[in-house]
Design a protein around this nucleic acid. Structure first.
Lengths: 250, 250
DNA sequence: GTCAATTTAGACACTATTGTCTAAATCGTC
DNA sequence: GACGATTTAGACAATAGTGTCTAAATTGAC
Protein backbone atom coordinates (compact mmCIF):
# COMPACT_ATOMS: atom_id res chain seq x y z
CA UNK A 1 0.00 0.00 0.00
CA UNK A 2 1.61 3.23 -1.09
CA UNK A 3 0.93 5.64 1.66
CA UNK A 4 0.41 9.42 1.47
CA UNK A 5 2.76 9.96 -1.42
CA UNK A 6 4.90 13.05 -0.98
CA UNK A 7 5.04 15.11 -4.18
CA UNK A 8 8.76 15.74 -3.95
CA UNK A 9 9.25 19.08 -5.66
CA UNK A 10 12.89 19.99 -5.80
CA UNK A 11 14.12 23.45 -6.54
CA UNK A 12 15.22 23.99 -10.14
CA UNK A 13 18.28 26.03 -10.86
CA UNK A 14 17.84 29.15 -12.91
CA UNK A 15 19.67 28.97 -16.26
CA UNK A 16 22.99 30.24 -17.59
CA UNK A 17 24.95 33.51 -17.53
CA UNK A 18 27.21 34.70 -14.72
CA UNK A 19 26.15 37.47 -12.39
CA UNK A 20 23.15 38.81 -14.26
CA UNK A 21 20.61 39.74 -11.64
CA UNK A 22 17.07 38.56 -12.28
CA UNK A 23 13.89 40.12 -10.95
CA UNK A 24 14.72 39.23 -7.37
CA UNK A 25 18.26 40.52 -7.61
CA UNK A 26 19.74 37.04 -7.54
CA UNK A 27 22.42 36.03 -10.00
CA UNK A 28 21.68 33.29 -12.48
CA UNK A 29 23.48 30.05 -12.03
CA UNK A 30 25.01 27.53 -14.30
CA UNK A 31 22.95 24.42 -13.68
CA UNK A 32 24.87 21.47 -12.40
CA UNK A 33 27.65 23.56 -10.98
CA UNK A 34 28.43 23.91 -7.33
CA UNK A 35 26.64 27.22 -7.40
CA UNK A 36 23.33 25.45 -7.57
CA UNK A 37 24.11 23.51 -4.43
CA UNK A 38 25.24 26.65 -2.67
CA UNK A 39 22.16 28.59 -3.62
CA UNK A 40 19.94 25.74 -2.60
CA UNK A 41 21.58 25.42 0.77
CA UNK A 42 21.39 29.18 1.26
CA UNK A 43 17.66 29.22 0.51
CA UNK A 44 17.20 26.20 2.72
CA UNK A 45 19.10 27.61 5.65
CA UNK A 46 17.45 31.00 5.22
CA UNK A 47 13.99 29.46 5.26
CA UNK A 48 14.77 27.57 8.44
CA UNK A 49 16.35 30.56 10.13
CA UNK A 50 13.74 33.12 9.10
CA UNK A 51 11.06 30.71 10.25
CA UNK A 52 12.74 30.12 13.58
CA UNK A 53 13.86 33.65 14.41
CA UNK A 54 11.77 35.92 12.21
CA UNK A 55 13.06 38.42 9.69
CA UNK A 56 14.65 40.92 12.06
CA UNK A 57 15.79 38.20 14.41
CA UNK A 58 17.81 36.53 11.68
CA UNK A 59 21.31 37.70 10.83
CA UNK A 60 23.03 37.07 7.54
CA UNK A 61 25.97 35.62 9.43
CA UNK A 62 23.70 33.06 11.05
CA UNK A 63 22.27 32.02 7.71
CA UNK A 64 25.75 31.80 6.26
CA UNK A 65 26.92 29.61 9.10
CA UNK A 66 23.87 27.39 8.89
CA UNK A 67 24.22 27.09 5.11
CA UNK A 68 27.92 26.37 5.37
CA UNK A 69 28.92 29.24 3.11
CA UNK A 70 30.61 32.54 3.71
CA UNK A 71 28.58 35.69 4.20
CA UNK A 72 29.98 37.18 1.02
CA UNK A 73 28.60 34.29 -1.01
CA UNK A 74 25.13 35.20 0.12
CA UNK A 75 25.69 38.77 -0.99
CA UNK A 76 26.97 37.45 -4.31
CA UNK A 77 23.65 35.73 -4.91
CA UNK A 78 21.22 38.16 -3.33
CA UNK A 79 21.52 41.89 -3.24
CA UNK A 80 20.49 42.25 0.40
CA UNK A 81 18.56 40.68 3.21
CA UNK A 82 15.18 41.70 1.86
CA UNK A 83 15.90 40.23 -1.55
CA UNK A 84 16.99 37.00 0.08
CA UNK A 85 13.83 36.93 2.12
CA UNK A 86 11.76 37.53 -1.00
CA UNK A 87 13.53 34.71 -2.78
CA UNK A 88 12.84 32.37 0.12
CA UNK A 89 9.18 33.32 0.16
CA UNK A 90 8.94 32.75 -3.58
CA UNK A 91 10.60 29.37 -3.34
CA UNK A 92 8.42 28.20 -0.48
CA UNK A 93 5.24 29.42 -2.13
CA UNK A 94 6.12 27.74 -5.41
CA UNK A 95 6.87 24.47 -3.69
CA UNK A 96 3.70 24.63 -1.62
CA UNK A 97 1.57 25.50 -4.62
CA UNK A 98 2.95 22.57 -6.56
CA UNK A 99 2.29 20.23 -3.67
CA UNK A 100 -1.18 21.68 -3.32
CA UNK A 101 -2.25 20.95 -6.86
CA UNK A 102 -0.71 17.51 -6.79
CA UNK A 103 -2.78 16.74 -3.73
CA UNK A 104 -5.93 18.34 -5.07
CA UNK A 105 -5.76 15.87 -7.94
CA UNK A 106 -6.23 13.07 -5.42
CA UNK A 107 -9.59 14.35 -4.16
CA UNK A 108 -12.02 11.43 -4.18
CA UNK A 109 -14.38 11.23 -7.12
CA UNK A 110 -16.47 8.27 -6.08
CA UNK A 111 -18.74 8.45 -3.09
CA UNK A 112 -18.29 4.91 -1.83
CA UNK A 113 -15.98 4.81 1.16
CA UNK A 114 -16.11 8.58 1.32
CA UNK A 115 -14.97 8.79 4.95
CA UNK A 116 -11.74 6.92 4.36
CA UNK A 117 -11.03 8.67 1.07
CA UNK A 118 -11.62 12.15 2.44
CA UNK A 119 -9.56 11.36 5.52
CA UNK A 120 -6.68 10.24 3.33
CA UNK A 121 -7.01 13.39 1.27
CA UNK A 122 -7.02 15.57 4.38
CA UNK A 123 -4.05 13.70 5.77
CA UNK A 124 -2.07 14.31 2.61
CA UNK A 125 -3.00 17.97 2.77
CA UNK A 126 -1.84 18.20 6.34
CA UNK A 127 1.40 16.30 5.93
CA UNK A 128 2.58 17.80 2.66
CA UNK A 129 1.11 21.26 2.71
CA UNK A 130 -0.30 22.79 5.83
CA UNK A 131 1.81 21.25 8.56
CA UNK A 132 5.19 20.60 6.97
CA UNK A 133 8.13 22.99 7.14
CA UNK A 134 6.86 25.08 4.25
CA UNK A 135 3.43 25.38 5.77
CA UNK A 136 4.93 26.38 9.08
CA UNK A 137 7.05 28.98 7.32
CA UNK A 138 4.11 30.56 5.57
CA UNK A 139 1.91 30.46 8.65
CA UNK A 140 4.50 32.02 10.92
CA UNK A 141 5.94 34.53 8.52
CA UNK A 142 2.61 35.77 7.23
CA UNK A 143 1.56 36.34 10.80
CA UNK A 144 4.80 38.04 11.68
CA UNK A 145 5.75 39.96 8.55
CA UNK A 146 2.58 39.96 6.51
CA UNK A 147 1.70 43.52 7.40
CA UNK A 148 5.22 44.82 6.94
CA UNK A 149 5.68 43.25 3.52
CA UNK A 150 2.16 43.09 2.11
CA UNK A 151 3.32 42.80 -1.49
CA UNK A 152 5.39 39.72 -0.71
CA UNK A 153 2.52 37.66 0.58
CA UNK A 154 -0.29 39.18 -1.45
CA UNK A 155 0.25 36.52 -4.09
CA UNK A 156 -0.08 33.88 -1.46
CA UNK A 157 -3.10 35.45 0.15
CA UNK A 158 -4.81 35.43 -3.23
CA UNK A 159 -3.48 32.19 -4.64
CA UNK A 160 -2.85 30.11 -1.56
CA UNK A 161 -5.64 29.37 0.87
CA UNK A 162 -8.27 31.00 -1.33
CA UNK A 163 -7.38 28.74 -4.21
CA UNK A 164 -7.38 25.62 -2.05
CA UNK A 165 -10.72 26.70 -0.73
CA UNK A 166 -12.38 27.17 -4.07
CA UNK A 167 -10.72 24.09 -5.52
CA UNK A 168 -12.06 21.97 -2.69
CA UNK A 169 -15.38 23.76 -3.00
CA UNK A 170 -15.67 22.71 -6.63
CA UNK A 171 -14.94 19.11 -5.77
CA UNK A 172 -17.36 19.10 -2.88
CA UNK A 173 -20.02 20.55 -5.18
CA UNK A 174 -19.35 17.69 -7.55
CA UNK A 175 -19.89 15.15 -4.80
CA UNK A 176 -23.04 17.02 -3.82
CA UNK A 177 -24.26 16.95 -7.40
CA UNK A 178 -23.59 13.24 -7.45
CA UNK A 179 -25.94 12.86 -4.50
CA UNK A 180 -23.42 12.02 -1.83
CA UNK A 181 -23.41 15.33 0.03
CA UNK A 182 -25.99 17.93 0.95
CA UNK A 183 -24.25 21.27 0.54
CA UNK A 184 -25.79 24.71 0.11
CA UNK A 185 -22.68 26.83 -0.06
CA UNK A 186 -19.69 24.87 -1.36
CA UNK A 187 -17.20 27.61 -0.52
CA UNK A 188 -18.35 27.74 3.06
CA UNK A 189 -18.35 23.97 3.25
CA UNK A 190 -14.79 23.90 1.94
CA UNK A 191 -13.62 26.36 4.58
CA UNK A 192 -15.35 24.35 7.25
CA UNK A 193 -13.85 21.16 5.91
CA UNK A 194 -10.38 22.64 6.22
CA UNK A 195 -11.15 24.00 9.66
CA UNK A 196 -12.49 20.67 10.87
CA UNK A 197 -9.64 18.51 9.65
CA UNK A 198 -7.15 20.80 11.37
CA UNK A 199 -9.29 21.34 14.48
CA UNK A 200 -7.30 19.08 16.74
CA UNK A 201 -4.09 20.87 15.91
CA UNK A 202 -5.02 24.35 17.06
CA UNK A 203 -6.66 23.89 20.41
CA UNK A 204 -4.86 21.20 22.31
CA UNK A 205 -2.10 23.20 23.93
CA UNK A 206 0.31 22.96 21.05
CA UNK A 207 -0.05 26.32 19.40
CA UNK A 208 2.41 27.14 16.67
CA UNK A 209 4.19 23.82 16.75
CA UNK A 210 4.24 21.24 14.04
CA UNK A 211 1.96 18.33 14.90
CA UNK A 212 3.15 14.78 14.60
CA UNK A 213 2.10 12.57 11.70
CA UNK A 214 -0.15 10.63 14.03
CA UNK A 215 -1.84 13.82 15.19
CA UNK A 216 -2.44 14.87 11.60
CA UNK A 217 -4.04 11.54 10.78
CA UNK A 218 -6.26 11.58 13.85
CA UNK A 219 -7.30 15.16 13.33
CA UNK A 220 -8.09 14.47 9.69
CA UNK A 221 -10.23 11.47 10.46
CA UNK A 222 -12.05 13.20 13.30
CA UNK A 223 -12.68 16.23 11.14
CA UNK A 224 -13.95 14.22 8.20
CA UNK A 225 -16.29 12.24 10.42
CA UNK A 226 -17.90 15.38 11.77
CA UNK A 227 -17.96 16.94 8.31
CA UNK A 228 -19.85 13.94 7.00
CA UNK A 229 -22.21 13.96 9.97
CA UNK A 230 -23.14 17.46 8.92
CA UNK A 231 -23.17 17.10 5.16
CA UNK A 232 -23.45 13.45 4.15
CA UNK A 233 -26.80 12.32 2.83
CA UNK A 234 -27.82 9.23 4.66
CA UNK A 235 -29.40 6.53 2.55
CA UNK A 236 -33.17 6.95 2.89
CA UNK A 237 -33.69 3.23 3.51
CA UNK A 238 -31.50 3.10 6.59
CA UNK A 239 -31.95 6.66 7.79
CA UNK A 240 -33.75 5.79 11.00
CA UNK A 241 -31.32 3.02 11.79
CA UNK A 242 -28.36 5.32 11.18
CA UNK A 243 -29.74 8.01 13.43
CA UNK A 244 -30.49 5.55 16.15
CA UNK A 245 -27.03 4.10 15.83
CA UNK A 246 -25.26 7.41 15.86
CA UNK A 247 -27.19 8.45 18.93
CA UNK A 248 -26.63 5.25 20.83
CA UNK A 249 -23.24 6.11 22.28
CA UNK A 250 -24.16 9.51 23.71
CA UNK B 1 -31.17 44.93 23.58
CA UNK B 2 -27.76 44.83 25.19
CA UNK B 3 -25.48 43.39 22.59
CA UNK B 4 -22.38 41.26 23.10
CA UNK B 5 -21.36 42.81 26.37
CA UNK B 6 -17.65 43.42 26.63
CA UNK B 7 -16.28 42.32 30.01
CA UNK B 8 -14.17 45.41 30.48
CA UNK B 9 -11.23 44.23 32.53
CA UNK B 10 -8.92 47.11 33.33
CA UNK B 11 -5.44 46.68 34.61
CA UNK B 12 -5.07 47.08 38.36
CA UNK B 13 -2.09 48.91 39.77
CA UNK B 14 0.21 46.93 41.99
CA UNK B 15 0.29 48.22 45.57
CA UNK B 16 2.60 50.50 47.52
CA UNK B 17 6.33 50.84 48.11
CA UNK B 18 8.73 52.70 45.82
CA UNK B 19 11.18 50.80 43.65
CA UNK B 20 10.86 47.37 45.14
CA UNK B 21 11.07 44.97 42.28
CA UNK B 22 8.42 42.26 42.18
CA UNK B 23 8.73 38.85 40.58
CA UNK B 24 8.88 40.32 37.09
CA UNK B 25 11.50 42.87 38.03
CA UNK B 26 9.03 45.71 37.82
CA UNK B 27 8.85 48.31 40.58
CA UNK B 28 5.66 48.57 42.57
CA UNK B 29 3.60 51.66 42.07
CA UNK B 30 1.67 53.91 44.35
CA UNK B 31 -1.88 53.45 43.13
CA UNK B 32 -3.59 56.58 41.94
CA UNK B 33 -0.35 58.33 41.21
CA UNK B 34 0.85 59.30 37.78
CA UNK B 35 3.08 56.25 37.88
CA UNK B 36 0.12 54.01 37.33
CA UNK B 37 -0.81 55.85 34.19
CA UNK B 38 2.77 55.68 32.96
CA UNK B 39 3.08 52.00 33.61
CA UNK B 40 -0.23 51.33 31.95
CA UNK B 41 0.71 53.29 28.87
CA UNK B 42 4.07 51.56 28.74
CA UNK B 43 2.45 48.12 28.87
CA UNK B 44 -0.10 49.24 26.33
CA UNK B 45 2.41 50.64 23.90
CA UNK B 46 4.70 47.68 24.40
CA UNK B 47 1.89 45.23 23.64
CA UNK B 48 1.03 47.08 20.46
CA UNK B 49 4.63 47.38 19.34
CA UNK B 50 5.68 43.84 20.20
CA UNK B 51 2.60 42.60 18.38
CA UNK B 52 3.30 44.69 15.31
CA UNK B 53 7.07 44.28 15.04
CA UNK B 54 7.88 41.20 17.08
CA UNK B 55 10.26 41.02 20.02
CA UNK B 56 13.54 41.60 18.19
CA UNK B 57 11.95 44.06 15.80
CA UNK B 58 10.84 46.28 18.66
CA UNK B 59 13.20 48.83 20.18
CA UNK B 60 12.82 50.29 23.64
CA UNK B 61 13.02 53.75 22.12
CA UNK B 62 10.06 52.99 19.91
CA UNK B 63 8.00 51.80 22.85
CA UNK B 64 8.99 54.86 24.81
CA UNK B 65 7.97 57.16 21.99
CA UNK B 66 4.69 55.35 21.50
CA UNK B 67 3.96 55.40 25.21
CA UNK B 68 4.87 59.06 25.48
CA UNK B 69 7.51 58.46 28.15
CA UNK B 70 11.27 58.63 28.16
CA UNK B 71 13.33 55.53 27.69
CA UNK B 72 14.74 55.81 31.15
CA UNK B 73 11.26 55.60 32.64
CA UNK B 74 10.83 52.21 31.07
CA UNK B 75 14.09 51.05 32.61
CA UNK B 76 12.90 52.44 35.94
CA UNK B 77 9.89 50.14 35.83
CA UNK B 78 11.31 47.08 34.12
CA UNK B 79 14.80 45.75 34.44
CA UNK B 80 15.29 45.03 30.75
CA UNK B 81 13.52 44.27 27.52
CA UNK B 82 12.83 40.67 28.39
CA UNK B 83 11.27 41.60 31.70
CA UNK B 84 9.08 44.13 29.97
CA UNK B 85 8.06 41.54 27.45
CA UNK B 86 7.22 39.12 30.22
CA UNK B 87 5.13 41.73 31.98
CA UNK B 88 3.21 42.42 28.79
CA UNK B 89 2.57 38.73 28.23
CA UNK B 90 1.37 38.38 31.81
CA UNK B 91 -0.97 41.33 31.51
CA UNK B 92 -2.44 40.18 28.23
CA UNK B 93 -2.92 36.64 29.47
CA UNK B 94 -4.57 37.80 32.67
CA UNK B 95 -6.95 40.05 30.76
CA UNK B 96 -7.76 37.35 28.24
CA UNK B 97 -8.32 34.76 30.93
CA UNK B 98 -10.70 37.06 32.76
CA UNK B 99 -12.63 37.76 29.56
CA UNK B 100 -12.67 34.07 28.83
CA UNK B 101 -14.33 33.07 32.04
CA UNK B 102 -16.80 35.93 31.88
CA UNK B 103 -17.84 34.71 28.46
CA UNK B 104 -17.91 31.05 29.45
CA UNK B 105 -20.53 31.99 32.04
CA UNK B 106 -22.83 33.01 29.21
CA UNK B 107 -22.84 29.60 27.56
CA UNK B 108 -26.46 28.67 26.89
CA UNK B 109 -28.12 26.34 29.40
CA UNK B 110 -31.46 25.83 27.75
CA UNK B 111 -31.75 24.04 24.46
CA UNK B 112 -34.55 26.08 22.93
CA UNK B 113 -33.20 28.49 20.33
CA UNK B 114 -29.85 26.79 20.55
CA UNK B 115 -28.62 28.05 17.21
CA UNK B 116 -29.04 31.72 18.08
CA UNK B 117 -27.71 31.28 21.60
CA UNK B 118 -24.62 29.38 20.52
CA UNK B 119 -23.99 31.87 17.74
CA UNK B 120 -24.16 34.73 20.25
CA UNK B 121 -21.79 32.87 22.53
CA UNK B 122 -19.35 32.23 19.69
CA UNK B 123 -19.59 35.85 18.61
CA UNK B 124 -18.72 37.04 22.10
CA UNK B 125 -15.80 34.65 22.17
CA UNK B 126 -14.54 35.97 18.87
CA UNK B 127 -14.98 39.63 19.62
CA UNK B 128 -13.67 39.73 23.16
CA UNK B 129 -11.17 36.93 23.23
CA UNK B 130 -9.88 35.33 20.10
CA UNK B 131 -9.96 38.17 17.60
CA UNK B 132 -9.40 41.32 19.63
CA UNK B 133 -6.02 42.93 20.19
CA UNK B 134 -5.12 40.60 23.03
CA UNK B 135 -6.05 37.56 21.01
CA UNK B 136 -4.00 38.83 18.10
CA UNK B 137 -1.06 39.43 20.43
CA UNK B 138 -1.14 35.92 21.84
CA UNK B 139 -1.65 34.32 18.46
CA UNK B 140 1.18 36.21 16.78
CA UNK B 141 3.65 36.17 19.64
CA UNK B 142 3.18 32.51 20.48
CA UNK B 143 3.83 31.69 16.86
CA UNK B 144 6.83 33.99 16.68
CA UNK B 145 8.45 33.68 20.11
CA UNK B 146 6.79 30.62 21.58
CA UNK B 147 9.76 28.40 20.93
CA UNK B 148 12.31 30.94 22.08
CA UNK B 149 10.56 31.65 25.37
CA UNK B 150 8.75 28.43 26.17
CA UNK B 151 8.40 29.21 29.86
CA UNK B 152 6.61 32.47 29.11
CA UNK B 153 3.77 30.92 27.20
CA UNK B 154 3.67 27.56 28.90
CA UNK B 155 1.09 28.90 31.31
CA UNK B 156 -1.00 30.01 28.39
CA UNK B 157 -0.59 26.77 26.52
CA UNK B 158 -1.83 24.92 29.56
CA UNK B 159 -4.42 27.36 30.83
CA UNK B 160 -5.55 29.12 27.69
CA UNK B 161 -6.98 27.17 24.78
CA UNK B 162 -6.94 23.90 26.68
CA UNK B 163 -9.06 25.38 29.43
CA UNK B 164 -11.53 26.93 27.00
CA UNK B 165 -11.68 23.60 25.27
CA UNK B 166 -12.50 21.58 28.34
CA UNK B 167 -14.83 24.24 29.70
CA UNK B 168 -16.83 24.23 26.50
CA UNK B 169 -16.62 20.45 26.43
CA UNK B 170 -18.26 20.29 29.86
CA UNK B 171 -21.05 22.59 28.76
CA UNK B 172 -21.60 20.69 25.53
CA UNK B 173 -21.76 17.47 27.51
CA UNK B 174 -24.43 19.05 29.66
CA UNK B 175 -26.49 19.94 26.60
CA UNK B 176 -25.97 16.42 25.34
CA UNK B 177 -27.10 14.99 28.64
CA UNK B 178 -30.17 17.19 28.42
CA UNK B 179 -31.01 15.54 25.12
CA UNK B 180 -30.28 18.44 22.81
CA UNK B 181 -27.03 17.18 21.34
CA UNK B 182 -25.60 13.85 20.30
CA UNK B 183 -21.96 13.91 21.31
CA UNK B 184 -19.58 11.02 21.82
CA UNK B 185 -16.41 12.88 22.70
CA UNK B 186 -17.13 16.29 24.26
CA UNK B 187 -13.51 17.42 24.11
CA UNK B 188 -13.29 16.69 20.42
CA UNK B 189 -16.66 18.35 19.86
CA UNK B 190 -15.46 21.44 21.69
CA UNK B 191 -12.34 21.70 19.55
CA UNK B 192 -14.42 21.27 16.45
CA UNK B 193 -16.90 23.86 17.68
CA UNK B 194 -14.09 26.37 18.08
CA UNK B 195 -12.63 25.44 14.73
CA UNK B 196 -15.97 25.80 12.98
CA UNK B 197 -16.94 29.17 14.40
CA UNK B 198 -13.57 30.58 13.34
CA UNK B 199 -13.46 28.75 10.03
CA UNK B 200 -14.32 31.74 7.87
CA UNK B 201 -11.54 33.76 9.41
CA UNK B 202 -8.60 31.55 8.49
CA UNK B 203 -9.16 30.60 4.89
CA UNK B 204 -10.51 33.58 3.03
CA UNK B 205 -7.30 35.33 2.09
CA UNK B 206 -7.03 37.31 5.28
CA UNK B 207 -4.42 35.40 7.19
CA UNK B 208 -3.10 37.00 10.31
CA UNK B 209 -5.34 40.02 10.17
CA UNK B 210 -8.07 40.92 12.59
CA UNK B 211 -11.48 40.19 11.09
CA UNK B 212 -14.26 42.75 11.20
CA UNK B 213 -17.13 42.44 13.67
CA UNK B 214 -19.41 41.51 10.81
CA UNK B 215 -17.06 38.74 9.73
CA UNK B 216 -16.94 37.40 13.27
CA UNK B 217 -20.71 37.28 13.46
CA UNK B 218 -21.11 35.60 10.11
CA UNK B 219 -18.39 33.08 10.83
CA UNK B 220 -19.92 32.29 14.21
CA UNK B 221 -23.38 31.74 12.79
CA UNK B 222 -22.11 29.65 9.90
CA UNK B 223 -20.01 27.57 12.22
CA UNK B 224 -22.80 27.00 14.71
CA UNK B 225 -25.20 25.96 11.95
CA UNK B 226 -22.81 23.30 10.69
CA UNK B 227 -22.00 22.22 14.24
CA UNK B 228 -25.68 21.69 14.91
CA UNK B 229 -26.16 19.88 11.62
CA UNK B 230 -23.56 17.44 12.85
CA UNK B 231 -24.50 17.17 16.51
CA UNK B 232 -28.06 18.39 17.10
CA UNK B 233 -30.67 15.78 17.75
CA UNK B 234 -33.61 16.45 15.48
CA UNK B 235 -36.98 15.98 17.05
CA UNK B 236 -38.18 12.52 16.09
CA UNK B 237 -41.62 13.79 15.10
CA UNK B 238 -40.36 16.21 12.48
CA UNK B 239 -37.18 14.40 11.51
CA UNK B 240 -38.20 13.64 7.96
CA UNK B 241 -39.49 17.17 7.42
CA UNK B 242 -36.27 18.65 8.82
CA UNK B 243 -34.11 16.54 6.60
CA UNK B 244 -36.16 17.34 3.54
CA UNK B 245 -36.01 21.02 4.39
CA UNK B 246 -32.27 21.11 4.99
CA UNK B 247 -31.71 19.34 1.73
CA UNK B 248 -34.07 21.47 -0.31
CA UNK B 249 -31.71 24.29 -1.12
CA UNK B 250 -28.78 22.20 -2.38
C1' DG C 1 47.86 22.74 -16.26
C1' DT C 2 45.59 26.92 -17.37
C1' DC C 3 42.31 30.25 -16.80
C1' DA C 4 38.18 32.36 -15.53
C1' DA C 5 34.61 32.14 -12.33
C1' DT C 6 33.52 31.61 -7.74
C1' DT C 7 34.17 31.35 -2.92
C1' DT C 8 36.34 32.63 1.23
C1' DA C 9 38.07 35.14 5.39
C1' DG C 10 38.84 39.21 7.20
C1' DA C 11 38.87 44.12 7.67
C1' DC C 12 36.09 48.02 7.29
C1' DA C 13 32.71 52.07 7.96
C1' DC C 14 28.23 52.77 9.30
C1' DT C 15 24.09 52.38 11.75
C1' DA C 16 21.05 50.70 15.35
C1' DT C 17 20.22 49.11 19.86
C1' DT C 18 20.92 48.07 24.65
C1' DG C 19 21.47 49.39 29.20
C1' DT C 20 23.90 52.81 32.41
C1' DC C 21 24.77 57.17 34.20
C1' DT C 22 24.14 62.01 35.14
C1' DA C 23 22.10 66.41 36.19
C1' DA C 24 18.19 69.05 35.51
C1' DA C 25 13.21 69.37 35.42
C1' DT C 26 8.76 67.99 37.01
C1' DC C 27 5.32 66.09 40.01
C1' DG C 28 2.67 65.39 44.29
C1' DT C 29 2.06 65.82 48.93
C1' DC C 30 2.44 68.04 53.08
C1' DG D 1 6.84 76.77 49.07
C1' DA D 2 9.57 72.70 50.57
C1' DC D 3 10.89 68.17 49.93
C1' DG D 4 11.26 63.61 48.32
C1' DA D 5 10.05 60.81 44.56
C1' DT D 6 9.81 60.45 39.75
C1' DT D 7 10.59 61.66 35.08
C1' DT D 8 13.30 63.49 31.51
C1' DA D 9 16.89 64.42 27.94
C1' DG D 10 21.13 63.50 26.69
C1' DA D 11 25.64 61.51 26.75
C1' DC D 12 27.93 57.26 26.97
C1' DA D 13 30.31 52.55 26.22
C1' DA D 14 29.43 48.19 24.50
C1' DT D 15 27.63 45.16 21.34
C1' DA D 16 25.66 43.47 17.10
C1' DG D 17 24.32 43.75 12.46
C1' DT D 18 24.54 45.43 7.50
C1' DG D 19 26.66 45.84 3.31
C1' DT D 20 31.27 46.84 0.89
C1' DC D 21 35.82 45.88 -0.29
C1' DT D 22 40.04 43.32 -0.85
C1' DA D 23 43.32 39.74 -1.71
C1' DA D 24 43.97 35.03 -1.41
C1' DA D 25 42.16 30.40 -2.05
C1' DT D 26 39.36 27.20 -4.37
C1' DT D 27 36.70 25.28 -7.96
C1' DG D 28 35.58 23.51 -12.50
C1' DA D 29 35.78 23.26 -17.45
C1' DC D 30 38.70 22.93 -21.25
Amino acid sequence: MKNTDKPAVTLQCAPVAPYLPDTRGQAFTRPGSGQCMKRHSILDAAARTFCRDGFTGTSIDLIAAEAGVSRQTIYNHYRDKEMLFGAVVDAVMERTNAALFAILATFPEKSDNLEADLALFATRLGKNCMCNSDGEFLRKLIQAEGERYPELFQIWRENGPAKVGSAIAARLARLAHGGALDIDDPDLAARQFLALVTADMNFCGMQGEKPTEKQIETSALNGVRTFLRAFAIRKASSARADMALSRSSA
